Amino acid sequence: MHSSPADLMRRNLLDVFNEPDPARRAAAIAETYHEDVVWHEPDRIVYGRKDLERRAAEVRAENPDWIFRPLGPASELDDVGHLGFQYGPANQPSVVNGMDIARTKDGVIIELYTIVTEIRQPS
């Protein structure tokens, strides 16, 4: 199945980073990212699908009751996708706002950039 950049952005946020089950998250990662994906976070760079899987598990473990919510619709231009996000406790205002931008090729993400635009104190 060939996914559009906008579809990949939604899967990245919801099927990977919101997925609590490790097996389902691993399956989504295998379908969404290239084997040699590079993920640029604000404080680190993650190389490859396996390290992305490990880092996604860490993010989930840091705040297990928090969720990612899309901030507006996913957009795309050629092979680039974009999706704004909110992150925080479920059913409460977000603590973190940001965006993911990805380069895609052949229906998978090859490079992902996560940019944090705002951090607030939790309620």
Rank of each mutant, 00 (worst) to 15 (best):
S3Y: 08
S3T: 02
A6I: 09
A6R: 11
D7C: 00
L8M: 05
L13N: 00
D15M: 03
F17T: 01
F17I: 00
N18I: 00
E19F: 07
P20C: 08
D21T: 06
D21G: 05
A27E: 14
I29G: 04
T32W: 06
H34M: 09
H34K: 08
D36R: 15
P42N: 08
D43F: 11
R44F: 05
I45A: 11
V46R: 04
G48L: 10
D51L: 14
D51A: 15
D51M: 10
E53Q: 13
R54Y: 06
R55P: 00
A57N: 00
E58D: 12
V59F: 08
V59L: 10
R60F: 06
D65F: 05
W66L: 03
W66V: 04
I67P: 01
R69H: 04
P73H: 09
P73K: 12
E76G: 06
D78V: 15
D78K: 13
D79V: 12
H82E: 09
G84D: 01
F85Y: 11
Q86Y: 07
Y87C: 08
A90Y: 00
N91D: 15
Q92C: 06
Q92M: 12
V96P: 03
G98V: 05
I101E: 07
R103M: 03
T104G: 09
D106Q: 12
D106V: 04
I109Y: 01
I109V: 14
I110F: 07
L112N: 07
Y113K: 10
Y113G: 06
Y113P: 04
T114G: 10
I115T: 15
V116D: 10
T117S: 15
I119N: 06
Q121G: 03
P122V: 09
P122R: 10
S123A: 14
S123D: 13
